[in-house]
């Protein structure tokens, strides 16, 4: 197969994969955040290479999520204790991607969450004026998944929207492939 043909096939698969993430995740949200079905669109990973490599980046427009949200999620293989998991604030902060939310100041403690079959913790932060961030870390055995959601405005991203997206089938397919559990 010629190189151009291979490139076309690869590009085709890439487009298809991107479309898979253009999903309607979870039930329609109610309340002040959004009444629309949130639509997450995959975008280019915007951060430079570091020890954890690249992950997945998504955007949800204000029209769909009530405000512009940017979500970054990646695996940190072997970085979590399989016995204690993401047990407390300290462990969450050790795992968190603070490089994605420079100057973040915690707004209180974390609380437990569940993403699909995995358990973890979520904590919200303020980044300067007018921006908030949410860090979510959860684990499968000794592998951690870390999601960072940056939102415009003083209110953090709605937890149900984000958890529903992370727990949804397209994301879980990526998680299972990345962690080798499928």
């Amino acid at each position: 197969m010629k190189r151009s043909a291979i490139a076309a096939v690869v590009a085709g698969f890439g487009a298809a994969a991107a479309l898979l993430f253009l999903v309607a995740s979870g039930p329609p949200q109610t309340g002040s955040i959004s009444t629309a079905r949130p639509l997450w669109v995959e975008t280019k990973w915007p951060f430079p290479m570091d020890q954890w490599g690249e992950g997945k980046a998504f955007q949800c427009k204000a029209a769909d999520c009530g405000r512009d949200l940017r979500l970054y999620v990646r695996a940190k293989i072997g970085f979590c204790s399989s016995t204690i998991g993401v047990a407390d604030d300290s462990e969450l902060e050790r795992l968190s991607d603070f490089d994605f939310m420079k100057g973040a100041v915690a707004r209180g403690g974390s609380h437990e969450i569940a993403v699909a079959w995995m358990k973890g913790r979520l904590r919200t932060y303020t980044i300067g004026a007018g921006t908030t961030a949410t860090s979510i870390a959860y684990n499968n055995e000794s592998d951690a998944l870390v999601a960072t959601i940056v939102a415009d405005g003083a209110e953090p991203a709605a937890e149900p929207i984000v958890i529903a997206f992370l727990s949804g089938e397209p994301m879980q397919r990526w998680v299972k492939k990345t962690l080798g559990v499928e």
Partner: peptide, 8 residues
């Protein structure tokens, strides 16, 4: 302290 936790 707060923010990024340096490598242990």
């Amino acid at each position: 302290s707060a923010g990024k936790v340096p490598t242990e």
